[in-house]
Design a protein around this nucleic acid. Structure first.
Lengths: 132, 132
DNA sequence: CCTTGACCTTCCAGTTGCTGGAACCCTTAT
DNA sequence: ATAAGGGTTCCAGCAACTGGAAGGTCAAGG
């Protein structure tokens, strides 16, 4: 299979596939003309990584998951642990954004939004940043 | 004021302050020995940018906000517009993360998390990625 | 006067996860 | 023969810093 076929079928763009080869996720064969030749296993792996990425797993998470995926004797508990960790990170990001949202939304409500120059948003931004 | 003083008082690390100078946010004086010499205005601007960043404004947003901040005749409506746009982006990110969270959380619930190798999480990851 | 340590400086590289573009080769159809 | 549409490599760049190396400066202590 050529790269554009596997891109279409896996949903991962060619550029990204080359990148995933570069970082060692897949090792497709090469034809005599230098073209990459993908098999069904490559296809599965790419779809797997693509889906994991779209669920917010980092590249390093994917590396771990891919090992577990390749190891047919792994315990589901190991996978669950990685997934739980990812879920925690997602929750932390959501909480962070919701805090931001509350503050900003409050500021927007306070601002008249007219032609006058006085603006509570700018006034508030003069405070020290929120440390994290 | 030296860089570490202004870093402490503004809450923005020295490295980041140098970076902000590089991209033109501030233009502190220089002493004969080459050290940067910050005044109160620099301090205010740095705190302003730091706080805006912590509220999810991008660097480009900050550039716009800084102009509005410097322009004492600006209309508060202009500031409000930038802030509203930022709020929309934050909402979009939250929605995205919540979708991820729901899918992942569902998968985790489905997974026994024991010593056996069968795992609904891995099975599901084999599906095509979520396109966006 | 010398040393020590805490500052400060610049510059280069790395982070994350790709993405765009240039320059070039290969294949297939007309 | 040629043109379109594959494929290849390599280099650069995005955001927004952050770390580290190599070196200059300053104030205090022995």
């Amino acid at each position: 299979m050529n790269i554009s076929d596997v891109a279409e079928r896996s949903g991962v763009p060619p550029k990204t596939i080359r990148y995933y080869e570069e970082i060692g996720f897949i090792k497709p064969d090469r034809r005599p003309n230098g073209y990459r030749d993908f098999d069904e296993t490559d296809l599965h792996k790419l779809a797997f990584i693509g889906r994991a990425r779209s669920l917010g797993f980092t590249i390093e998470d994917c590396r771990t998951l891919l090992e577990l995926y390749n190891d047919k004797t792994r315990a589901s508990a190991d996978v669950k642990r990685v997934a739980r960790h990812n879920l925690q990170e997602i929750d932390a990001k959501i909480a962070d954004l919701q805090t931001m949202r509350a503050t900003l939304s409050h500021l927007i409500d306070q601002c008249a939004g007219d032609d006058r120059p006085d603006c509570p948003i700018l006034d508030n931004l003069e405070q020290a940043p929120i440390r994290r």
